[in-house]
């Protein structure tokens, strides 16, 4: 493992719903090293997605700060934050969120044309195993294929960090395993830092590190000396 890429210090996040204040994150601190594969597990409402959104610059904490490659995200203005998401972060969503009016290739192109150092589109598509499905629209693809497109879209920008929100949540077991294997492969091949959040405890064993969250706090943190290959995970 090499240097630290993200450091989160004492992150808290509160939402106001009517007269009630709901604490989504409470004093969470975290360090992520370059090239690390982290799995964050926890039940619904434990604050996983909130943490991921804050790390990705999609949301701001109520208190605390996120340092990315030495830069405090709280000090970035709107356009700098956009630039941060554009260049440094790749998102993979549970429900893929592809543009239905665009083909697989065009969905990926949507990301590659944003940055100057993007990976070769064909190479990325080949990497995710979609060379022969490039001209298909999302409606003509299976859930697993759609998620591969979503991963290709996130990866193609050549981001520093890949943030995956329940990437297997909408997939069947076998497809889920294949997606996890792909993410691990990309982590190894490109050195991309990967953070996966999931409620599936079994996935935790494939990460270099596992964080368990409950009620907005990190309640357990464990380094895996020998992470399991995705193919050996069972749930």
């Amino acid at each position: 493992m090499s240097d630290e890429i993200i450091r989160a210090e004492n992150l808290s996040k509160e939402y106001v719903q009517g007269d009630v204040r709901v604490g989504a994150l409470q004093d969470v601190s975290l360090e992520v090293r370059t090239g690390e594969f982290i799995v964050i597990v926890g039940p619904s409402g434990s604050g996983k997605s909130t943490l991921l959104n804050i790390l990705g610059g999609m949301d701001v904490p109520t208190s605390g700060r996120v340092i990315y490659a030495g830069r405090d995200l709280a000090e970035l203005n709107e356009s700098e934050l956009t630039e941060y998401r554009r260049s440094e972060i790749g998102f993979v969503f549970q429900l893929y969120n592809l543009m239905s009016a665009l083909t697989a290739r065009e969905n990926v192109q949507l990301a590659t044309e944003l940055v100057s150092g993007a990976l070769d589109l064909d190479e990325v598509m080949e990497k995710v195993g979609l060379t022969d499905r490039m001209e298909h629209f999302p409606s003509q693809m299976s859930g697993g294929e759609q998620q591969r497109v979503a991963i290709a879209r996130a990866l193609a920008k050549n981001p520093g960090v890949l943030l995956c929100d329940e990437p297997t949540g909408a997939l069947d077991y076998e497809t889920g395993i294949r997606i996890l294997a792909l993410l691990r492969e990309l982590n190894c091949d490109y050195g991309t830092t990967v953070i996966i959040i999931t409620h599936n405890l079994a996935v935790a064993d494939m990460g270099d590190r596992m964080l368990r969250m409950r009620s907005g706090q990190i309640v357990e943190q464990r380094e895996n000396e020998e992470p399991l290959p995705a193919e050996r995970i069972v749930w």
Binding site: M58, N97, V115
Partner: peptide
């Protein structure tokens, strides 16, 4: 709404 969210998440500016 979601498309806009995704575009912004990917890095598109307002």
């Amino acid at each position: 709404r979601t498309v806009i969210g995704v575009l912004k998440a990917i890095g598109y500016s307002d």
